[in-house]
Design a protein around this nucleic acid. Structure first.
Lengths: 135, 135
DNA sequence: CTGCCACTTCAAGTCAACTTGAGGTCAACC
DNA sequence: GGTTGACCTCAAGTTGACTTGAAGTGGCAG
């Protein structure tokens, strides 16, 4: 199995070496070996980093992400928990979609004052409701 | 126009008073008046807080959010910029959707080892590609 | 074999976004 | 008129996620 130097892994993943060392320190990834002092990573880590990137995108903390995936990159949570996470994501996706629609609408709608536009007002209303719901 | 005490605003919005003061300090919201020492907020601020919540959900920093909306809660960016933001959101939504699908798939797929499941492998591949793209 | 340069460690620094705490004000109820 | 409770200010502390810097190491091209 071919191993990657930290610089190569960094280049391929887009994650700076300092961050990779940090991730190893907190147990998010691990190096397979050393060549002298130098860490050698398995290519698998590239997949893990992709997963980490997605998880961060979804707003999970590194600690949560660490708890979510086994070291082979496969999820390691019980089924109900996985569904729960997925539901959270669904809600998040809906919120983001609304925000995107609001942005696009405002960009295209020629109305002088958006507060009078019924479509915009509906979006604002949704925003209020969902903000109140969370917490 | 009826004004809200910070406690009331906090209760209705779900945002702690300390955070509301902080938001005022950094110019994200403003209080309309004082009653003695006490800040009085317009109900409009509730809408703004909802927007802020959506913006945070979308991964924008408070500084970015501040730059995105005028103080009446309406977006104040030029059209191309709005579309650009919307595009960013689109990409983010796609990533989140993939992550959600991966989670759900793993929760339901009876395969012993997910790494051998073609569907899961496709999702992983996507994760790698999108992670490499972002940077 | 020598020098370069990408790596190493470890401690300290940074940044955003808040929270906490000490000490103070004020309107209202008992 | 005193105590309570919700507010106030301002400074300092916290957390998560990194980054930076100083000082050292070691593989390999020339």
């Amino acid at each position: 199995m071919k191993l990657l130097d930290i610089g190569v892994l960094s280049k391929r993943s887009g994650v700076p070496p300092s961050t990779l060392r940090y991730y190893e320190e907190i147990g998010l990834i691990q190096s397979a070996a050393r060549n002298g002092l130098r860490r050698q990573f398995e290519t698998l880590v590239l997949t893990q980093l992709a997963l980490i990137s997605l998880g961060k995108m979804a707003g999970f903390s590194l600690a949560e992400i660490r708890g979510m995936f086994a070291k082979d990159g496969t999820p390691k949570l019980p089924r109900p928990e996985l569904h729960l996470r997925a539901d959270t994501l669904d809600e998040q996706i809906r919120g983001l979609t609304r925000l995107r629609d609001a942005l696009r609408h405002v960009a295209d709608c020629p109305a002088e004052t958006h507060m009078d536009c019924p479509k915009f007002k509906r979006l604002m209303e949704f925003a209020s409701r969902s903000a109140a719901a969370r917490k």
